[in-house]
């Protein structure tokens, strides 16, 4: 009975239940079989995701040698005594928010350009523009590191040709923050482009034709047709990217290693530095747990949007 209520449409099981045949007995056993088939997944999630998440909470309450319980000492130490913590909070938020905004904007613009050109050429352009997303980020960040090189780097060479002085891409805190964001935008914008392009294709042409006849400007078409039609996909993509960007590790780790002067550390890289490199596991766990509130808020909103989407369909 229980398994019936979980079904999306009750009509189909009711038809099957009527004849009390071997089929009915077969369906009677099916919830057991179903549970067994999902068991590896449940075990994997339970042992390697949910348990570590709560274990992290436990670890965060211990002292450095993990011998005694210290309550919230680690959290209050970070919040009130460690100045570097607030630098990390600031650079993480700056990094995540500005990178997501630029990714969403560039993705939106590029998706429109691809959508504008004749359909038979779109595949080729889309294929080229998605390449940054396909390359493992640790590898592509190495290429950026070399492009940013202060004496032999190709970027400064090119800028010098048009008369712009040498830029300390990763040598100076402000520029280093900019470079980290730039690399993340480069890596993530193609994902937004693909999502928005798929969504643009689902907007009926007739709406734009009607708007043309009514004499709408391009801005009015975007504001009153495109954006409302894409609202859901924009929300989901942005929130999803916010989570991934906020928890980013590879780019900062390879490009700046948190430097100069720990000014570009994100939660993830700082937690790695403290927890693994310096061996203070409880403090590292506390640092990474500070990511949870923002991740949780984003996750709640995504879930709401996904469910809404399910109801519309």
């Amino acid at each position: 009975m229980v398994d019936m209520t979980a079904g999306q449409s009750a009509a189909v099981p009711r038809q099957i239940r009527k004849p009390k045949s071997p089929i009915a007995r077969f369906f009677g056993r099916r919830s057991t079989i179903a549970f067994l088939m999902a068991l590896p997944l449940i075990l994997l999630i339970g042992v390697l995701v949910i348990y570590p998440a709560f274990y992290s909470l436990h670890l965060a309450t211990l002292n450095k040698r993990m011998t005694e319980f210290r309550g919230f000492d680690n959290f209050s130490f970070l919040l009130f005594k460690k100045d570097a913590f607030w630098t990390v909070v600031y650079s993480s938020c700056l990094f995540a928010v500005s990178a997501v905004i630029f990714k969403a904007f560039i993705g939106f613009v590029v998706a429109h350009f691809v959508h504008n050109i004749p359909a038979k050429g779109q595949r080729k352009w889309r294929g080229m523009l998605l390449i940054p997303w396909v390359i493992p980020p640790a590898m592509s960040t190495l290429a950026w590191l070399w492009l940013f090189d202060s004496s032999y780097g190709a970027l400064n060479w090119t800028l010098a040709k048009i008369g712009i002085g040498p830029i300390p891409w990763i040598g100076e805190p402000g520029w280093a923050r900019f470079s980290v964001i730039l690399v993340n935008v480069w890596f993530g914008a193609p994902f937004f482009m693909i999502m928005y392009l798929a969504s643009l294709k689902s907007v009926p042409d007739a709406l734009y034709e009607a708007a043309d006849i009514d004499g709408a400007t391009w801005w009015q078409k975007i504001r009153y047709i495109t954006l409302p039609m894409m609202r859901n996909i924009i929300a989901i993509t942005t929130l999803f990217s916010l989570i991934v960007t906020f928890a980013n590790f590879d780019i900062v780790r390879v490009l700046t290693q948190g430097g100069p002067l720990d000014q570009t550390h994100l939660f993830a890289t700082w937690a790695f530095e403290i927890g693994i490199r310096s061996g203070d596991i409880p403090l590292g766990a506390s640092v990474s747990l500070f990511m949870v509130p923002i991740l949780a808020i984003a996750a709640v909103f995504i879930l709401r949007d996904i469910n809404k989407r399910g109801n519309e369909a």
Partner: peptide
Amino acid sequence: LVPDTLLFIPLFKM
């Protein structure tokens, strides 16, 4: 949606 950067320290200890 749970990122790897949240889990690597407890997994390390485990």
